[in-house]
Design a protein around this nucleic acid. Structure first.
Lengths: 342, 342
DNA sequence: ACCGATATTGACAGCGCTACCAAGCGATTG
DNA sequence: CAATCGCTTGGTAGCGCTGTCAATATCGGT
């Protein structure tokens, strides 16, 4: 004989229903679609649930309904400040909603990403937020067959899997270089670390801008696969100076590198911007309060995360966003470090 | 008559079992406790599962077993670099294990924390990692009755709910001040933002050290409830200078404030450390590469997260750590910004 | 060859909830 | 006044897996 698995004192939906004097299924409906109940029963179930302190069992719900209320988020890094802002936006948008977040770290590997994707999609998530537009062919195929809203974040491009929100890294970098050119700088170096697809597109934007201005020179480019850091910014900047001592400006693919370059300038007693202009990318908080203040390209990361989560929710609620691809743009923030060449 | 909810093509445990020629329950055991099977059946189930691409249904597992394989993590902030490192440690430790992470943001509110705790514990988590030792009385009561490993992180103190890993913020701050005193500084200011309990204890450490040296002066202390930032570091430092123009050093409760103070010094053409010594807290990466390099108190955040997760796993696997309270310590990193007073 | 002990395996029911269908009910309509 | 309609409510079964216990296979010792 099998056991009687009794769980004494646990409040189940049945208890709530009994107290409210309705059937369990009616109580169930109260939590999923309150409008379907008559006002009287709705009030009775509500007060019964509150009185008993009922908390639904999500596992049972997921099993019976064949779907979860979890939104998966795949990002390449937990350390990068950029993703902290995106995450904050996502969490804020989902706060108070029925949905929870399952976060996974791909560590900048699309194979890792594919593995996590398979694992995750098997659990029938309510939605998915995934970083970038470079997934493996298999990942692509899997996502196209899956039946849940998917938002690709961080950049925009052709052929979204479902929805997309971000900006053009190519254009943003190009605009940063255009700014430096307009300020009178000519020998503009490029510093890049962890050359992920988005950083690569920034390099493309740099190359396009420099080529258009007939100023392109491969010796001005220093990149590495090493993860970014302030210290690395100093090192790369030193490398760049060794390769091209005559540079008058440097564009860094992120603000950490820019800060590192600034410190390296200080160590070399190089005046910024008089002897060396610096422009970063992302406009992290400290850029506005360094000495000198550092120019950067502002990207709307918090809004990106927030909107991505909202797009998922809206789709789930049947109010699909009119525009599946959202370009949040960017803006070049001009500060002291790239003041006009005198 | 009720429906036949057929799900065609879905691979369930039963399919795997049939292909392997064993009963479903044996297949189930393969995934939970492979050693219990004979080598032959183990191999058969394994190859059957691989051939069919079986992925277990976690909702069904959770419902049947009355517990989940989710470890909850409650942290007060997603933006703070400190927690990014802790999280990375946790994710790394749990990577490849059967456990997944449910992350929640308390926003430095213990009431919010209590709400999240109730919500979360109702889902029977496998374990819980929670920040700090200051929870509401109700939270405490709830956690004591719940039957899962709990690790309090970020600090150590008396009376752990279950396990604990961190360090003494009081001692760490006191050691930082002792270092400045040893270097010959006397009028040492204190800069504090977002005075959460741990920051408060750093202030206590500062006060203790200064009082012991008979140098305590309340005018040397500037604090605010505003969240920390580099910009705020500059502002607070300016406030401090206005209140106490004769200070010769400043201890900042975190590195962002220290960096902000450094920039403010540069703006005022104050030489660091000749006219003003600076010591931060946490030893973020950039402290080692600023100009001048900034002294700080190194805390082992990654290890803290990693060990906390490992303590949870070990407990779940029956190998409970010998020592429930782990003090990871700290170290004062002496750099240029607090060089000996000449 | 027999016994009990140990290692494997299987049968059964049920975890708590929701999908599906059907029924009840009062209101509306020709 | 009967037929019809829309709204609300309930009954039944089952989602996929695992806890409990029983049954069987294996083994060493006497």
């Amino acid at each position: 004989m099998a056991r009687k698995r009794i769980t004494p004192g646990k409040i189940r939906l049945a208890e709530v229903a009994k107290l409210a004097g309705v059937s369990p299924i009616t109580a169930s409906r109260f939590f999923r679609n309150p409008e379907a109940l008559s006002a009287g029963k709705r009030a009775r179930v509500e007060s019964a649930a509150k009185e008993l302190g009922y908390v639904p069992n999500l596992a049972a719900r997921a099993l019976a309904s064949q779907r979860t209320e979890v939104i998966g988020v795949l990002i390449p890094s937990l350390t990068n400040n950029v993703f902290a802002d995106v995450l904050r936006g996502i969490y804020d948008a989902l706060d108070g909603s029925r949905y929870s977040i399952q976060l996974a770290n791909t560590r900048y590997s699309i194979l890792q990403e594919e593995r996590l994707l398979r694992l995750f999609l098997a659990q029938k998530p309510a939605g998915l937020i995934i970083t970038g537009i470079n997934q493996t062919a298999d990942s692509h195929r899997i996502m196209e067959t899956v039946d849940c809203p998917i938002v690709q974040i961080m950049e925009v491009g052709p052929a979204p899997i479902d929805m997309m929100i971000g900006f053009s890294h190519f254009d943003a970098a190009k605009a940063a270089i255009a700014h430096l050119l307009a300020q009178g700088y000519r020998r503009i170096g490029f510093l890049g670390a962890r050359m992920d697809p988005r950083v690569q597109r920034r390099l493309d934007g740099y190359r396009a801008a420099m080529t258009e201005a007939a100023l392109f020179d491969p010796r001005l480019i220093v990149t590495t696969a090493i993860p970014t850091s302030v210290t690395l910014g100093g090192t790369l900047f030193a490398d760049l100076l060794a390769k091209a001592p005559d540079i008058d400006a440097v564009f860094c693919v992120n603000d950490d590198l820019a800060l590192g370059a600034l410190f390296e300038c200080k160590r070399r007693h190089m005046a910024v911007p008089e002897q060396m202009a610096i422009v970063g990318f992302n406009d992290l908080e400290f850029m506005a309060s360094s000495e000198p203040t550092l120019s950067s390209v502002r990207t709307n990361r918090y809004e990106m995360g927030r909107n991505a989560a909202m797009m998922v929710i809206e789709t789930l609620e049947g109010r699909r966003p009119a525009e599946p691809v959202v370009d949040l743009g960017f803006s070049v923030i001009e500060r002291q470090s790239s003041a006009r060449r005198s």
